[in-house]
Amino acid sequence: MSLEYALKRLAIRPSTVCTQCRRMFASSANRSAQSATGAFAAVLQSNRDQDTAHRAPRTRGLAASTTRSAGNPSKGIELGRSMVQEIAAGQQAKRDAALADLQRSYTRQDLERQAVRKWKVGDVYSPSDLSGYEQAKWKRISRKPYPTRKTKGDVMDQLGMNPINEYKNFSIMSEYVSNMGRIQHRKETGLRPVNQRRMAKAIRRAIGVGLMPSTYRHPEIIKGTLETGRRF
C-alpha cells in the first residue's frame, strides 16, 4: 500500500509527498508473501540491497523532506515522516522475522504443540515438569479406569439402586456387558458380590425377555456410539 493514500486521508496534508519515499513502500514485501520461494528470494534480495539500495533512498528521501519542511514547517510533514519511519521499521522487522523463520528449524507452532499440558490453577511444577519427556506423557490419552471398590466404592450402593429393578434400563445393562455381550467380571465392574449377582441376573433377565441382544450391545447404544464417536 502506498503511503500516498494514507497521507491523503490526513486532515493536515503536506503539499507534496516525497516521491522517492514511495519506492520503499511499494517494495516486494506483499508480493513475496505469496510463495515461500518468493519470500526467500525477496529476503535474500532485500538483505543484499539493505546497505546500498535501501538505506540510501531512505536517507535521501528524509533529507529531501526535511529540507522542504524547513521552509514550510507544518505538522503534516512531521507526522508523515514519523509514519514513514514507523512503516519502514515495521517492514524491516517483518523481513528480519521472515529471515529468522527460514534460518530456524522449527516454528512457533512446533513449540506450542510440544507444550501439551493444560496447566490449571494450583498446579505445582518443578523444572522437570516443563521438559519434553514429561510433556510427552501428557500427550497420551488414557481411558478412565473402571471404578474399583477400593477407589470409588460400589456404584449401585452409592446411588441406592437395586440392579434387579433396573433390568428394563438397557443403557445401564449395556455398561456392564462387553462388546460381545458377555457379562463383565466383578473386578471390572467394581460391584460388591451381592450387587454383582443381582446385576448378572438383571442382564440375563433383560436378554431373556428380549430387551437386549446377547451377542452385542443394545443397538441404540451402538448407534449413539457411532454418532458421537465415543467408545465404551
Binding site: V116, R117, K118, G122, D123, V124, Y125, S126, S128, D129, E134, K137, W138, K139, R140, I141, S142, R143, K144, R230
Partner: peptide, 21 residues
C-alpha cells in the same frame, strides 16, 4: 488427582508429574 476426568472418560495425566501438594 492431577487431571479431572472428562465425560468421555478420557484423560491425560503423567504419573511422574509434580503433585499439587
Amino acid at each position: 488427582l492431577l487431571e479431572t476426568l472428562t465425560a468421555g472418560g478420557r484423560f491425560r495425566a503423567s504419573d511422574t508429574a509434580t503433585a499439587p501438594y
